[in-house]
Design a protein around this nucleic acid. Structure first.
Lengths: 215, 215
DNA sequence: AGAAAACCGTACCGCCGGTGCAGTTTTCGC
DNA sequence: GCGAAAACTGCACCGGCGGTACGGTTTTCT
């Protein structure tokens, strides 16, 4: 009864590749079972419908992403004690990781499924929603620690800043796809990083000629 | 032979509503013709397949959006001669327009179709691509005028800034959908506006006490 | 050995996009 | 008002899709 999980994972692997490459709707069950070498009955033994497949994909995706983010921001925490630096370093490492993927990053299941919402039932949509909120909460937590330590240059809500980072990632993914250029995602992640940096770093040192201050 | 165009427009109206609400794949031809009160033959008389419907939707969407953007940034040009202010005012007006829509903005056809790419043929995808590039080029043109007049606080490429604005819009749309909160889009459009503002406005005026400069 | 888990085979359903084609009504220019 | 083109209708049919139903078989663990 170990083999059951193996098959399940194989189905998820094949489905995930299809969904990222072609979207959920365009990835047919027939196609999945053909590649997996099983029958339709076998598929429906593991997933009683396509919604359950979607949930399986999202669940796996979430934990994998949590691991990656944990590694990246864990490393950032090793490199600096400062909350601002931790976020900046983490975002840089994250962007570098996306840029380093051969053939470009695979795209994000959550982003994909957000836009195919009506293909799914409420359960799946709630799951997508909760994952997005997890991301926002994660970045918001980091931003709030920064706010406690740094003066804000403009009166901007931490939630907005957090959503801006998530937005840059989602927007970057969608634009990478639209333009067929995977470099847009890391580029825009770094833009989000720069935004945070500017919001908290005293700009005067760069923008104002030092003579003006010295005078 | 005027009635032909009327029917065509009616089909497009119904299809557009469906696509924005449920996505392209989930909007069936049967459903469209039922609401339009025509037969399947009638539908295929106007659009020889679903790809042509998609192109029709995109074409209409593009010209409508061009008009809106023209109005918004035209108004901004009336209100200021300064290239930076024109972009800032235009983005504010744009965000306000999105926020003012009852029941929230309808979402963007281009963003929707970017993520359903594999449902379409190359022609449609090329069209989506070209629209995204038009947007980038538009914002890039504005940014370049600003760059010519203002010192950049950080060495950031105008193209990146332009893509950041487009990204904020796309990301804002996708996050509004995911979270079921239409206010995220205008919020993130204003975040993009603020980014531009910070990049070009000498922060010193805010961050450095005026006395320090006067002294 | 036996029970549960992990499948297979087959036949079937309704929806969907799409085709083909012959026939009918509507509209417009002359 | 007439004729031709445009704008449809009606119907029959196709293959792919998600999904159901159910009886039978193999594999795996205990």
């Amino acid at each position: 009864m170990r083999k059951g999980n193996e098959t399940r994972e194989r189905i998820l692997d094949i489905a995930e590749a299809g969904v990222l490459a072609k979207g959920f709707g365009a990835t047919s069950i027939d196609e999945i079972i053909a590649e997996a070498g099983i029958t339709k009955s076998g598929f429906f033994y593991h997933f009683h419908d396509k919604n359950e497949l979607a949930r399986g994909l999202l669940s796996r995706h979430r934990s994998r992403l949590e691991q990656l983010v944990g590694e990246v921001f864990g490393r950032a925490a090793e490199l600096s004690d400062d909350p601002l630096q931790r976020l900046l370093i983490g975002l840089t490492l994250f962007a570098e990781h996306m840029a380093s993927m051969p053939g470009g990053h695979p795209g994000c299941l959550v982003a994909t499924m957000s836009y195919q919402g009506q293909l799914f039932n409420r359960e799946v949509r709630a799951m997508v929603n909760s994952i997005v909120e997890e991301w926002n909460a994660f970045f918001r937590g980091m931003v709030e620690k920064i706010v406690a330590a740094y003066p804000l240059r403009e009166p901007v809500d931490p939630g907005r800043i957090a959503r801006n980072i998530t937005c840059a990632i989602d927007g970057g993914i969608i634009m990478s796809k639209s333009l067929g250029d995977p470099s847009v995602l890391p580029e825009q992640m770094l833009m989000a990083r720069n935004y945070v940096k500017m919001l908290f770093q005293p700009a005067a040192l760069h923008a104002v000629p030092r003579e003006a201050l010295a005078a």
